[in-house]
Nucleic acid binder design. Structure first.
Lengths: 111, 111
DNA sequence: TTATATTATCGTAATATTGCAATATAATAA
DNA sequence: TTATTATATTGCAATATTACGATAATATAA
């Protein structure tokens, strides 16, 4: 098999899983951190920042674009990338919805 | 290849990616949500909740245990699972560190 | 036009993930 | 002891992911 049975789960569960997958590689985490810190459009230097080959980075960028976390516009010969603020907020909320579900079980230690 | 080049990235980047991987499957999201909502020890019923075979769920539980998000203790014949509060806090902070890095670029729309 | 520079896509090899049947293990009950 | 019940492990097939060389596409410069 090797194929996820998405039909068994809710849209929210599948959405969160899909987004989490975008964060599930250190190169993509690094790209996101770099764009967050720069807080502006970045072109090119990503390839020099990370130690991966250009096609590999291009592929990671494609995945991040696919889920909408980043956006890129052609700027002459190169492409400028930055965080998509609206989608970023959405993603943040997706995770926070889960994180805030937790409340410490009071007066009883669980297992 | 197919193998992630972890040596190129920081411990934090690899850690976040590893944790994100735990969230990167709807079945594991469902398990986490179920434990969060129950807010107590759950045994067994997970297999009935999700529509996956018992070995498959056992495998997902193993992965969640491996990164420390959940813990299980043997309770007679069955096993009680619950969220690990300390690790949950850590994971929450890992993500929040990233989310709070973002500040809306003021007075300039990016790309 | 022909170069040059930057990014994207294709093709492919290596490895990882998902799912489950079969089986094993562990704890209690009879 | 021998059931029974619940969970874990093994082994394997199908599919997905990661990485990169080769090459294509795109935009500007000469």
């Amino acid at each position: 098999m090797g194929v996820t049975k998405t039909e068994l789960f809710t849209a929210e569960q599948n959405d969160l899983a899909q987004v989490a997958k975008a964060f599930a590689h250190p190169a993509r985490v690094a790209i996101i951190q770099y764009l967050l810190k720069a807080n502006t459009c970045i072109n090119g230097n990503l390839v020099q920042e990370l130690g991966l080959a250009q096609p590999t980075i291009s592929q990671h960028l494609k995945e991040l674009k696919a889920i909408g976390i980043i956006q890129g516009t052609t700027e002459g010969v190169s492409v400028s990338y930055c965080i998509n603020p609206e989608r970023w907020e959405e993603v943040k909320n997706l995770f926070n919805n889960l994180f805030t579900l937790f409340t410490t079980p009071s007066g009883r230690d669980c297992c």
